[in-house]
Design a protein around this nucleic acid. Structure first.
Lengths: 167, 167
DNA sequence: CGTGAAATTGATCTCCTTCAAAAAAGGTGG
DNA sequence: CCACCTTTTTTGAAGGAGATCAATTTCACG
């Protein structure tokens, strides 16, 4: 939990609202604005609005589902499928909030997949060679063949529990 | 979600209470009794007892924390550290509920860590050779050097969020 | 005992890491 | 617009951790 001078505990995500000790860290990939809301306030608010509490719970459930999928991705798939899978996940998630334009270095991709940057590079070349993606400029990936990319990553968006997709 | 004849939807874990589609499966490792409680009943109960709802939420948060740690374990640690880590986690969790006597095949260990059974075997031998554990009989692991096992697995029990440990 | 599951061993192969270096791509100040 | 510098991408080569395949041995138990 983040402590700020003269305020009650607040945390950067729902993951630590009810946990005393924070067991992870957060970082932003782009410049970001961050707001702090004291735990007390959130709790009181949720008590007053159980429907919203449900939604919050749902959110943490989905986070857990995503982590579960990551365990599979990192533990059971080779570099090719693993990278295809994150590309699929990132795309679907960005699209759900209407931000089709992501940006990521190969080092970040490696961090997300547990693959060395060198091998990320070679795997991207392979994906490119197969026509699944293209990388027109640095830090940008264009999905050229969505169906085959999903296939390569054994990607099934179910675990994201996104019900209404932006068109 | 599991559907049973003549009943409303129920699910085998909290992970799917609020999610429409179940994205994972469950299995018991030993013979078990399973009770089904319809979602409606659980939801009404939680609405009536917000303190318990908090505890349930907390539980799902901890599950998520555990999955997060698994991503690290599977993605960033080699077989030696990975197996040491699960042994630590399993031990701490069992102890928290007073069940110090676990039981697991090497194949199950491999499944939990994403390591082939052959390599699980070799890694256990290594852990044994270093005096961290012993395997007196099949399916049983005795921790001989808790401190060094934790070290080997880079195990920090924080992420389990167990506050009171059984003595 | 016999029988199937679990543990063990040996050998080979490959995916991926690591190390090292070069080429490209962006920015920045002049 | 160019020279410069940093970050990112790309390439090559070598080594290693772990998978896979195939047997053998040990164990649990009816």
């Amino acid at each position: 939990m983040e402590e700020r001078a003269g305020s009650t505990p607040s945390s950067p995500d729902l993951q630590s609202l009810d946990l005393e000790v924070m067991d992870h860290s957060l970082a932003t990939v782009v410049a970001s604005k961050v707001a702090f809301i004291p735990h007390e306030v959130v709790r009181a608010f949720l008590r007053a609005h159980p429907r919203i509490a449900d939604v919050f719970w749902r959110d943490t459930l989905i986070d857990a589902a995503v982590f579960r999928e990551w365990v599979v991705n990192v533990g059971r798939r080779d570099a090719y499928a693993r990278i295809a899978h994150v590309l699929c996940e990132v795309y679907v998630r960005l699209r759900a909030v209407g931000l089709v334009n992501g940006q990521a270095t190969q080092a970040e991709l490696g961090d997300a997949t547990g693959i060395s940057t060198v091998h990320v590079n070679r795997t991207l070349q392979e994906l490119r060679g197969h026509g699944l993606i293209s990388t027109p400029k640095s830090g940008r990936v264009v999905i050229e063949d969505w169906d085959r990319l999903q296939e390569a990553g054994e990607f099934d968006p179910t675990y994201l529990h996104i019900t209404k997709l932006a068109a």
